Amino acid sequence: MITLRHAQDRGHANFGWLNSHHSFSFGNYYDPQHMGFSHLRVINDDSVSPDAGFETHGHKDMEIISLVLEGRISHKDSAGNIEELPVGEYQLMSAGKGIFHSEFNASKTDPLKFLQIWIQPNKLGGAPDYQQKTFGETQGFTTVITPDGKNDTLQVKQDMQLIQLILESETEVTWQADKYRHYYVHVIEGELSLGNGVILKAGDGAKIEDQTDIHFKKVGQQRSKALLFDLI
């Protein structure tokens, strides 16, 4: 079963310095039909004005993933991490028993665009942790996050995987799924077909359940890039 979530139907918040679209209920946006999916709690598509950002604030017991789509993030946290994330970089911050952090647009002239993703952990408390890595632009599937950090992936406190999908010269691939697990696709750029006339455009998402194969096909001439969440 495939359930679509079109980009234009997402929640929206505009604070001037921040323009954000919410795939699931977040902040002042509340929709009981879209409270998350399995342990995937948040996908926010954020655009931040130059020299602006999220002031220091706290989190507890949440796995927070950021992926930079345009520009650079300047990150600081109470664990002593001071980092900068360029385009294509993945950041995974495990809040654990509690952490304070800030995320700013590192540029005074150029916009910042990034995805903010929250995963509810299966282990509470513990020391906060910070990981950051780029995984390149390889065609097909690239596993980015796993529960055990295998093959130099980022390690998350949950039974889930995050897979990056890029289709350019290669136009069609299949993910071997487990019918008892849940999958969510979020399209970053281009268009993807999931078969049976289901077309996803940038900003669209889809819940996928009770499937043993997930077929992805690039639509049009532009390359397609998406995230695939493998969830319990």
Rank of each mutant, 00 (worst) to 15 (best):
P32F: 13
T153R: 04
L85K: 14
Q8W: 10
N28G: 01
Q211R: 00
E191L: 10
P147R: 09
S107P: 05
E137A: 02
D46K: 00
E55C: 08
F15T: 14
I117M: 11
L162S: 03
S94E: 13
A106Q: 08
I65D: 02
S47K: 09
D230C: 12
A7E: 12
N28V: 12
D77W: 13
S74I: 05
M93S: 11
F37L: 01
Q116V: 03
S193A: 13
L124T: 11
E84Q: 12
I43T: 03
S25Q: 07
Q33A: 14
I232F: 15
D110S: 04
R181H: 06
A202F: 11
V87H: 11
F24I: 14
N122I: 15
F26N: 03
G190H: 10
F104M: 04
I65T: 06
P121N: 11
N44C: 01
S78F: 03
Q132E: 02
A95H: 14
I64W: 12
D31K: 05
G203W: 12
N122T: 13
Q161H: 14
T142Q: 09
E103I: 07
L231V: 11
L112E: 15
D230Q: 09
M160P: 00
S66N: 08
L165V: 01
L18S: 05
Q176N: 09
D210E: 10
H39K: 06
F135I: 04
K218P: 05
S107Y: 07
L165C: 01
A52T: 12
S74G: 03
I99F: 09
K133W: 15
Q91D: 12
H75E: 09
I208G: 00
E209D: 06
H57T: 15
K60E: 13
